[in-house]
């Protein structure tokens, strides 16, 4: 196989897998910020919580990786409902700055709390046998776990797309993102809608956290370490836009991977170059409201 083609496939495949992780973890943040204008810097903390629940379930109870992922996402989704109702709701009308202070405070607390319970050593989980090794597609092999990430991402995107575009709830969410006051005045209960999307978003973040164990490793500092990355995906995609977040995740994932593969000397430069380039041309991101 020609060298350039091989490079291209490598970048595309690894970038795609990375992009799926970015999408799954960031989409909740995007909707939160789009729907309520709420700056949730504790989003990474929900992801981290998901990751640690997976670790506990898999290692203490010997539950398989996949069921553990599901349990962790659901649990974090449910817990996040209480957070939203009790804490976040008081701050919807506050300024961005107060929201920043609140959520960064929560992130700090979560870091210390998880350090207390889990210690600072990075955690890992045993993967099921069928996720290890690599799959042979004839012309070359690909790591199974990454293929799994791509498939899982594709399935989730299909589900989210269906819910967003084809169902009543999806229509309401889109309406509320576009014009919240108008949506309320036609009788949509935006608060309840938001609770729901917040729970789903946090649950997905938790799923992302679980997936990240194998991808990036998991320590308590995860809560803030990758926050900028998630914010970049949200900003580049446009707040509250599903397809924007997806496109941004793809662009960031593939450009970052390509940059690392072809020009490792420039490090993480490419992520920021692409961010600046996109935002200078489209300040509201790919599909954000101007």
């Amino acid at each position: 196989m020609p060298h350039a083609l091989n490079d291209f496939i490598s970048v595309l495949f690894d970038g795609l897998a990375y992009a799926m992780f970015l999408f799954i973890t960031s989409v909740g943040l995007s909707v939160t910020m789009g729907l309520m204008g709420f700056v949730n810097l504790a989003h990474g903390a929900f992801a981290m919580a998901g990751g640690f629940i997976v670790v506990s379930l898999a290692r203490t109870y010997g539950i398989d990786f996949i069921p553990a992922l599901v349990i962790a996402s659901v649990t974090v989704g449910l817990i996040s409902v209480r957070f939203e109702q009790r804490l976040y709701r008081r701050f919807y009308k506050s300024t961005d700055l107060e929201q920043v202070l609140l959520t960064i405070g929560l992130a700090f607390m979560s870091i210390a709390a998880f350090t207390y319970f889990y210690g600072p050593i990075p955690k890992s989980v045993p993967l099921p046998h069928w996720l290890q090794g690599d799959v042979n597609l004839g012309f070359r092999t690909f790591p199974t776990y990454r293929a799994f990430l791509i498939v899982l991402g594709a399935v989730l995107i299909a589900i989210l797309w269906f819910v967003f575009e084809k169902t009543n709830i999806g229509a309401k969410i889109r309406a509320a993102v576009d014009n919240r006051r108008m949506a309320e005045s036609v009788g949509i209960n935006v608060d309840r809608l938001f609770t729901l999307t917040f729970a789903v978003g946090s649950g997905l973040a938790a799923l992302g956290g679980g997936l990240a164990i194998q991808l990036l490793g998991l320590t308590p500092s995860f809560a803030l370490l990758y926050l900028v990355l998630f914010l970049i995906v949200v900003a580049v995609g446009g707040m509250g836009s599903l397809k924007g977040t997806l496109l941004a995740a793809l662009v960031i994932g593939i450009v970052d991977t390509g940059g690392k593969y072809l020009f490792p000397v420039a490090g993480t430069f490419f992520i920021y170059v692409i961010t600046v380039a996109v935002l200078l041309v489209k300040p509201a991101g790919f599909f954000g409201r101007e």
């Binding site: 897998a17 991808l215 490793g217 390509g258 690392k260």
Partner: peptide, 15 residues
């Protein structure tokens, strides 16, 4: 091959 900063753990796969 330099592999990014010591602060964040990168996705090592491309490297």
């Amino acid at each position: 091959i330099p592999m990014g900063s010591p602060v964040q753990v990168p996705d090592f796969t491309p490297f």
